[in-house]
């Protein structure tokens, strides 16, 4: 490993702010993944649902999950390029 790389690693380990931001990025990524999974599961349920009223409820949930996922991506982008 080159010295510069080592220095960057050491700095990121010692810099509390950077460490915090790393943890935050990891957490947001985890949530985005969970939301994507939920959205897919809801879409699967929507395809199988015969009742119109229930389908409408599931669609609303999909919209909400989608909006949250989009917001998560925005937050992540901001964290990556502050």
């Amino acid at each position: 490993m080159k010295i510069r790389k080592l220095l960057v690693k050491a700095r990121s380990l010692l810099d509390a702010k950077e460490r915090k931001s790393k943890v935050k990025k990891k957490s947001i990524k985890h949530i985005i993944k969970k939301l994507r999974k939920r959205e897919k599961a809801l879409q699967g349920r929507l395809k199988k649902e015969p009742s119109k009223s229930k389908s409408a409820k599931i669609s609303e949930q999909i919209n909400l999950t989608h909006a949250q996922r989009k917001k998560g991506l925005k937050v992540l982008k901001k964290l990556k390029n502050p």
Partner: peptide
């Protein structure tokens, strides 16, 4: 850390209003 992330992804009042009007 995850709890904090949950809070930052949760929708705010304006975003909730937008969703409530959409459907």
């Amino acid at each position: 850390a995850l709890k904090d992330a949950e809070k930052s992804v949760s929708l705010d009042e304006a975003e909730l209003d937008e969703l409530a009007q959409e459907n």
